[in-house]
Nucleic acid binder design. Structure first.
Length: 531
RNA sequence: GCGAGCGUAGCUCAGCCUGGUAGAGCAUCACGUUGCCAACGUGAGUGUCGAGGGUUCGAAUCCCUUCGCUCGCUCCA
């Protein structure tokens, strides 16, 4: 089937999301608020299904993972221990000429001669700028190179043929105020705090400063001892959590992909340090308590890929990025990103990191509380290491929507070709599982029977009843909502052909094929398809 | 944050240049019709033209500010 081009495709998807009620812009009637999105009726069902299914797969169906639900606002010292207070508030500077942005502390100190200018004037037009500007040139280079850069600067400000005013020079040593690439002055360092700040208590004072969590993981680490004490688990075991996190992104982009308020699904899986584990490679299907971090890391990557497959994102729709050593965070031993090919580019859905014992050690140090675990089997005492599969819920929802979106050319019986838009969600995550339709709405017997069928299905699955308009139109509406099955009550259901009494047609969203099914068999049949 | 473009009905968009207080298609709702894939008929509704301010007798249209969206740069623990 022909798919539209990328930008066009993304626009169609955004449009459908609004039209059908998957995603709305937050606070839209007030003009919207950048980086925040709401889920409409269909989106809310979809997201709930995805989270429920993750929760079921990660903890309810495993012996070795337990759940946690922690608060969004936590003790501010947590973010000092985790490093977020430091790394999330780097002062940044921009090059005044190229606008390129640097971390202020990462600019290589420069020495040389700085040429300062008070402004510039265009002798022919009379246009002038009194904006001060400076250029640093390396020792021994003539002032002409500084003037060239300064000319560019003033030309950008609308002075076509600038005459530089008030030039004076100065020797500078080890300055970080200039762009090392072109010598241009940079802006004053400006703080960028990526954490949302708030105040605990009614009085806004610095004592009460707190942050909305920028990730859910830390909550798990700080509750590690409590969970350990009650969960009757032995290392290796995991703690998982689903919850909101907040980042004051400089520039939210790509629909819901990078939002300022978003939801994460995270597992922290605690394992033995390699010195304690015997590090016995074994059958990957059969996890071993004594696996080292490398085996566990591979195991969780595979587990997660299987999970994505189970909701319809086949392996070949994903890409895998093994972060090279120079990109790894200093505490990480390995990170594998699971990526999805979005229309706007291939982007990360989940990162699976082997984080060593960094996080627990940090909290041990900052809180003064021991994070050690007594391994009864080996009698060893250690701070467990951790494997962290961390997924973004909202970007996964977006991936599912993009993946589900299909346009198909359909030829009707009159030979006219039209486009069918169909959202091919996996039945497990589809917002509605089944649509129930009376063939005609002006026949009370059909309507009555259809309502009975709806009521029969409703305790088991989300069922959408629709009687408005022609039957084909109702099918197409459900195609756009991604409802995988349609049940139609017709005259045969009522016994027009006696052998078909109490049977209905069951339509498959993707193939549009219909089969006749006994009403009695509907619930078990559909349940087998949506679980 | 910087640069460029854009913002008109639920959606897609015309109108803007050259000011005279808004339109199309689709969608929605009601009634009728409809015997399985966006049929048809009749009728109905909707816009503070993104917001605020200015110019003008008069602003969707011109100017300024602001918010939002898209793209590029930047950022991305």
């Amino acid at each position: 089937m022909a798919e539209p081009k990328t930008n066009e495709l993304m626009e169609k998807i955004v449009s459908l999301c609004k039209r059908r009620g998957f995603v709305f812009q937050s606070s839209e009637i007030y003009g919207g608020i950048n980086g925040f999105w709401d889920y409409g009726p269909l989106g809310a069902e979809l997201k709930r299904n995805v989270k429920d299914y993750w929760w079921r797969a990660m903890t309810q169906q495993r012996d070795d993972v337990v759940g946690l639900e922690a608060t969004i606002i936590m003790h501010p010292k947590i973010w000092e221990a985790s490093g977020h207070t430091r790394t999330f508030s780097d002062p940044m500077v921009d090059c005044l000429l190229t606008k390129k942005r640097f971390r202020a502390d990462q600019i290589e100190p420069q020495s040389g001669t700085a040429y300062h200018y008070a402004g510039a004037k265009d002798e022919t037009t009379g246009k002038a700028s009194d904006e001060a500007y400076s250029v640093l040139v390396p020792p021994g280079k003539p002032p002409e190179s500084a003037r060239k850069v300064a000319n560019q600067f003033y030309q950008q400000r609308g002075i076509a043929t600038p005459t530089l005013l008030g030039e004076r020079s100065e020797q500078v040593k080890e300055s970080t105020r200039y762009n090392p690439e072109n010598g241009s002055l940079v802006t004053e360092p400006r703080p960028f705090n990526l954490m949302f700040k708030t105040y605990v208590g009614p009085v806004e004072s610095e004592d009460g400063v707190a942050y909305l969590r920028p990730e859910t993981a830390q909550a798990i680490f700080v509750q590690f001892k409590n969970v350990l004490a009650v969960a009757r688990q032995k290392v290796p075991f995991g703690i998982c959590q689903i919850g909101k996190a907040f980042r004051n992104e400089i520039n939210p982009r790509n629909f819901t992909f990078r939002s300022r308020e978003f939801e994460q699904m995270e597992l922290e899986f605690f394992i033995k340090p390699d010195e304690v584990a015997k590090n016995t490679p074994a059958n990957p299907e059969n996890p071993q308590a004594n696996w080292g971090w490398s085996e566990w890391h591979k195991y969780w990557v595979e587990e997660r890929v299987k999970w994505y497959e189970s909701i319809g994102l086949d392996r070949n729709t994903l890409e895998f990025y093994h972060q090279p050593a120079n990109e790894l965070a200093h505490y990480a031993k390995a990170t594998v990103d699971i990526l999805f090919k979005f229309p706007f580019g291939t982007q990360e859905l989940e990162g699976i990191a082997a984080r060593g014992d960094f996080d627990l050690k940090q909290h041990q140090e900052y809180s003064g509380k021991s994070m050690e675990y007594l391994d009864e089997e080996t009698k060893a005492k250690y701070v467990p290491h951790v494997i962290e599969p961390s997924a973004g819920v909202d970007r996964l929802i977006l991936a599912l929507i993009c993946h589900a979106y299909h346009e198909e050319q359909v030829t009707d019986e009159k030979g006219a070709v039209e486009t069918r838009v169909v959202m091919k969600f996996h039945p497990r995550v589809a917002p509605f599982k089944v649509g129930v339709f009376p063939l005609l709405k002006n026949k009370p017997e059909l309507v009555k029977k259809a309502m009975e069928v709806r009521d029969l299905l409703r305790p088991h699955m989300t069922a959408f009843y629709d009687e408005a308009g022609a039957i084909g139109r109702r099918y197409r509406r459900q195609d756009e909502a991604g409802t995988p099955f349609g049940v139609t009550i017709d005259f045969d259901t009522l016994g027009e052909k006696p052998e078909l009494l109490d049977t209905v047609t069951l339509r498959d969203r993707d193939t549009m094929q219909q089969v006749r099914v006994k009403i009695d068999e509907l619930v078990p049949l559909l349940l087998s398809k949506i679980r």
